[in-house]
């Protein structure tokens, strides 16, 4: 289970998440794919930290921090989703384009 395998898996998941963010119109699904991308970077860090043995603890600590960031992100993201649903009663991304392009 070389780290190369783990990190490349993380990159593939990152690419899927990126695709999801760009492709989907539903704000909730975009939030989920963002979550996916953050999670894949976590995986990459853990995979990498295995290579450095004792020093690897830094990586784990960062993963912990990213968990916190992801949690706050979901909280605010969903608050905005509800906010959006109430004022504009839709969760579509494109349908909300009153701002003149």
């Amino acid at each position: 289970m070389t780290p190369v395998f783990v990190i490349s898996l993380a990159l593939i998941m990152f690419a899927i998440g990126l695709f999801g963010v760009l492709f989907r119109k539903n704000f909730i699904v975009i939030l989920m794919s963002l979550e996916l991308m953050l999670n894949s970077s976590n995986l990459a860090i853990v995979g990498a930290s295995q290579m450095f043995g004792e020093q690897g603890v830094q990586g784990h600590f960062l993963v912990l921090m990213i968990l916190i960031i992801a949690a706050v992100e979901v909280a605010i993201g969903l608050a905005i989703a509800v906010h959006m649903a109430r004022t504009a009663d839709t969760v579509e991304v494109d349908s909300l384009s009153e701002l003149p392009k």
């Binding site: 070389t2 780290p3 930290s49 295995q50 290579m51 450095f52 004792e54 690897g56 603890v57 784990h60």
Partner: peptide, 11 residues
């Protein structure tokens, strides 16, 4: 990239 060895450290 020449990754160096896989040195498992139990965290």
């Amino acid at each position: 990239y020449p990754m160096n060895g896989f040195y498992m450290a139990y965290v």
